[in-house]
Simulated assay, not measured.
Amino acid sequence: MHYSIDFAQQMHFPSNPLQPGPVYFLTPRKCGLFGVSCEGLQKQLNFLIDEGMSSGKGSNAVISYMHHFFTHFGVGETDVDLHCDNCTGQNQNNFMLWYGAWRVAHKLPSTLNIHFLIAGHTKFA
């Protein structure tokens, strides 16, 4: 199975939808978006993260979302190809490699190939 993962730009929405009148909000509430696209099935799962619950875009968050995805939404794949953006600044590459090694060591997939896109080419389908 082939998956692509990435964070999208934050979405903004009003923080109080019950406010009377057509008044614009000075500071809209932010919502983070992390997507896992299953290229083989042409389906995508999006994690919507409220700004109050966000722990950032670091490796802990990415691995937590991926582990939740594979545990609850995986299709029982034995071979995984995973495309990620190249986030060396947040040190996600090292931790993603360790997470992949952990999954294979526990025989969750038989093989897991992680592909990092070239810097500047971080757009997925």
Rank of each mutant, 00 (worst) to 15 (best):
Val104Gln: 04
Leu33Ser: 08
Val75Leu: 09
Asn113Asp: 01
Gln44Thr: 15
Glu77Thr: 04
Leu48Asp: 01
Phe7Cys: 08
Val62Gly: 03
Gly32His: 13
Pro20Arg: 13
Thr78Ile: 10
Pro109Cys: 04
Gly21Glu: 08
His115Glu: 09
Thr71Asn: 10
Pro17Ser: 12
Ser55Tyr: 01
His83Ser: 11
Arg103Trp: 10
Gln90Pro: 00
His121Ser: 07
Leu26Asn: 09
Met66Glu: 05
Phe73Val: 02
Leu45Ile: 13
Thr111Phe: 03
Met53Thr: 11
Thr111Glu: 02
Phe70Ile: 15
Cys31Phe: 07
Thr71Met: 08
Gly21Asn: 10
His12Asp: 14
Cys31Leu: 14
Asn46Arg: 10
Pro20Thr: 06
Ala105Arg: 13
Gly74Phe: 05
Asn16Cys: 10
Lys107Cys: 09
Ile5Asn: 08
Asn60Pro: 00
Asp85Ile: 02
Cys31Arg: 05
Leu33His: 04
Asn46Ile: 09
Trp102Gln: 12
Ser4Asn: 03
Lys57Tyr: 06
Ala125Tyr: 04
Gly40Asp: 15
Glu39Pro: 01
Ala105Gln: 13
Ser54Trp: 04
Asn60Gly: 12
Leu112Lys: 05
Leu18Pro: 00
Leu97Ser: 08
Gln92Trp: 00
Thr122Cys: 09
Phe25Leu: 06
His106Lys: 11
His115Lys: 07
Met96Tyr: 01
